[in-house]
Amino acid sequence: MMDRYTKLQMAGIYFCVAIFLIFMLLPFFEMFMASLRPLEHLFRSPYQFWSTDFSFDAYSKMWETVPLLGRYIFNSIFIAFSVTAITMVFVVPAAYAYARLKFPFKNASLAIFLGVNMFTGAVLLIPLYRVLRSMGLLNTYWAMIVPGVAFLIPTGIWLLRSYLEKIPLELEEAAFVDGASRMYTLRRVVLPLAVPGLIVVGVAVFIGAYAQQFLFAITFNQTRELQPLPAGLYEFIGYQSVTWNEMMAAALVGVLPVMVIFLFLQKYLVAGLTAGAVKE
């Protein structure tokens, strides 16, 4: 690895990475700055980067402005976790089947999965609404969980399938020769080896679930207590004024637990995304 790049190339690489990171992180930084500003600052011109009356007041006042904020944050995480858990229950056996078994319409159905992914949830909102209504699921957690799971299964299958395909077939053949059933092999051999892949897919599904819940929440759920954070943030938009600083503070606090989890899993994410790239 060492000395693979010249100093100049390294400088170039770091420069590009820096640009990219700034592009990605600037909105978060601005969110943070906005959350510190007193409200009247936000509309002041010219833009003032720093002033002495910055404070963390918004972080305490937001709980009063929107009393259910804690509940919203919990809902967000609860829904995303439920979606992830249920999705994985479906994705693991399906991805394994696509990776290893032969069955009719295998490639066709995989292509259809990908095709479904091309539709955004938005296109299907009205039919989905009718389905959920006839099943009596509107205004429950299920209204946000079920469509979430449905839209994430295809992505999950695609991601996990390619990971499972990299597990040497001979390991499974060895287990088969020794008398292990498919399920036993899956449990004792394949899944333990697929842990990095499962984490990558789990995280990807979680992100997906977190991102899409807003749309489902505002369409399929009217119950305040069940709203996730992105929908709950709407309550910072009052009749007279919008407390932007508190909204930004709430948004940051809401994503904080997720960020912490990601920091923990980062090692697996990197390992998972590069697995198979290096001969072991």
Binding site: E170, L171, A174, V177, D178, V189
Partner: peptide, 19 residues
Amino acid sequence: HPVDRGISMVFQSYALYPH
């Protein structure tokens, strides 16, 4: 089935379970 045949096999790559 392989077990009922009474065979066992050693693979070229050893096929040991790494975990």
